[in-house]
Amino acid sequence: MLLLAAQSPHDAIPDVALGKRIFASQCAVCHGEGGTGGRGPALTHAKLAKAPDEESLRKAIAQGIPPEMPGAWQLSVREVASVAKYVQGLGTVLPEKLPGDARRGAQVFGAKGCGGCHLVDGVGTARGPELTAIGAKRNGAHLRTSVIAPASHLPEDYLMLEVTTAAGRTVRGVRAAEDPFSVQLRDAGGALHSFRKGELKQWRHLAGESSMPSFAKQLSAGELEDLVAYLAGLRGNQ
């Protein structure tokens, strides 16, 4: 019984300074120094969507949020509690302020044909990743880069492939699945292709390539900021 009591999270007295050090070395790569966000969301909000209370926050830290957020299962109960305490403290920092106008951004999104590849609240074409809650996942700076230099920030599970069939036909597309014996990909038109690797002349991973075009040249500075503000405001199904 004593042994179990020792395991209780309420027994562990958190140390914010320790939490800060762990965060800097283990979390900041994705959540930014001071939790301002990046590949992972900014954590500088009073209430976090997927970690609204202390218990869920500790759970998110220890077990992760698949597939993008790894669990820090090796941390001790006290260390998890310490990081959680530090993350909670970040909530008092003012959230990122974005210069753009989200309402105008929504119009840019429509005008530039983003919906031709992305689903938002069930509307659009599902070729690229769903953006319904993208603002809860990425911060403003990351979203800005995603629009002007898509290939520099690929989602964890996104990979382009090029295969050449025995007959010499080349197919490029986004990997839907791959194992040592077969590969499935979707081409630009969204059609699914499935190949046995043994029947291919070759297949290549196009690491670092994206099928999303850069919009750097098609957006004015103002349009870009509006678009980013719109994306940052997308926080889940209404």
Binding site: Q7, S25, S76, E79
Partner: peptide, 12 residues
């Protein structure tokens, strides 16, 4: 990563 380690029976 290297972290603190304190032995308590039945814990990590």
């Amino acid at each position: 990563f290297k972290r603190e380690a304190q032995y308590k029976p039945g814990t990590f």
